[in-house]
Simulated assay, not measured.
Amino acid sequence: MSRPIVVGVDGSPESLAAVEWAAREALRRDRPLRLVHASEWTPERESCGAARMVRHHVGRGVLHRAADRVARICPDMWVTDEHVEAPALTALSDAAGRAELLVVGARGLSGRTGFLVGSVAQALTARAVRPVVLIEAGERAEDAHLPDGDGNPSLRTPYRDVVVGIDVRTACDEVIGFAFEAARLRGARLHALHAWSDADGMAPGPGEPAAGTGPAGEEDRRGFLGAVLQNWRDKYPGVDVVETVAAGGAAPHLVRAGTGAGLLVVGRRVHDSRVGPHTGPVTRTVIHHARCPVAVVPHR
Rank of each mutant, 00 (worst) to 15 (best):
D272H: 15
A290H: 00
C74P: 08
R130K: 14
G49W: 14
D143Y: 06
L92E: 05
D10Y: 10
E85K: 04
L27F: 02
L185W: 05
S12V: 03
A199F: 10
L124K: 04
C48K: 13
V9G: 01
A179L: 06
G187I: 03
E174P: 07
H299K: 02
P277W: 11
G223H: 10
C172T: 13
R156M: 13
R291L: 14
A247F: 03
I5Y: 04
G97K: 07
P204T: 07
T157K: 06
T157V: 13
G258L: 10
R284N: 08
V84I: 13
L33Q: 06
L190N: 02
I5Q: 11
A141G: 03
V36A: 06
A137P: 01
S39R: 15
D200Q: 10
A179I: 04
G187S: 06
L190S: 04
P153S: 08
L27R: 14
R24K: 05
V9D: 04
A295H: 09
I73S: 00
S15A: 14
A66I: 02
V266T: 07
E218D: 10
V79D: 07
R156I: 09
P281Q: 12
A195T: 00
S154F: 05
H271Y: 15
V162L: 08
G151E: 03
A141E: 13
S119R: 05
D234S: 13
V265L: 05
E219A: 15
G217E: 02
W196F: 00
T42G: 03
A91V: 08
P277L: 10
A50T: 14
V9L: 08
E218K: 08
G11L: 05
S110V: 14
T259C: 14
L193W: 04
L193Y: 08
H145M: 12
G249C: 06
G59C: 09
S93C: 12
F178S: 12
L27Q: 14
A86N: 10
G151P: 01
L16A: 02
E142C: 09
A123K: 07
I287L: 13
